[in-house]
Amino acid sequence: MKSKIFKIIAVVIIVTLGYFAYMWFMPHRNIQNTKAFATIDATKLVNEFLSDKEKANNLYLDSEGESKVLVVNGIVANISKDQLGQKVILLKKASEKMGVSCTFTLDSNSQVDNLEVGNQIKIKGVIRSGAEYDEDLDLTENVIIEKCAVVN
């Protein structure tokens, strides 16, 4: 009888420790291994936010920050680097004011090397925030996606 109680207590302790270890060491979500929620044109994605910000935020953003993984289709308008050294590709048509800003990672940076302005490509990443335009300040804000990689 006694040994049975000890066994139960031991199991409870191990499960509890395991749970806390899992919480502590919980890995970050792997964006590229996550199934994409949708494949969408850059223009359409921008317009969804401009026409109904609340609806688009509700559709794409997650309340714990695990927002939708998207494959965005568009034309390379600009290639730059952020202050961490991550490459950033802006998908936007020349006639448009705003586009989708796609930030690669230090690991996926090299995929950008063979790309040029004008290329039509598909990029997979996680959405962080939508597009906005502030008329008073002439401030344009692109849709932001991060942890990007080129989709073949």
């Binding site: 919980m26 890995p27 970050h28 309340s63």
Partner: peptide, 9 residues
């Protein structure tokens, strides 16, 4: 990762 989830929640 858990901290990031909490921060966003």
């Amino acid at each position: 990762a858990l901290m990031q989830k909490h921060y966003n929640s």
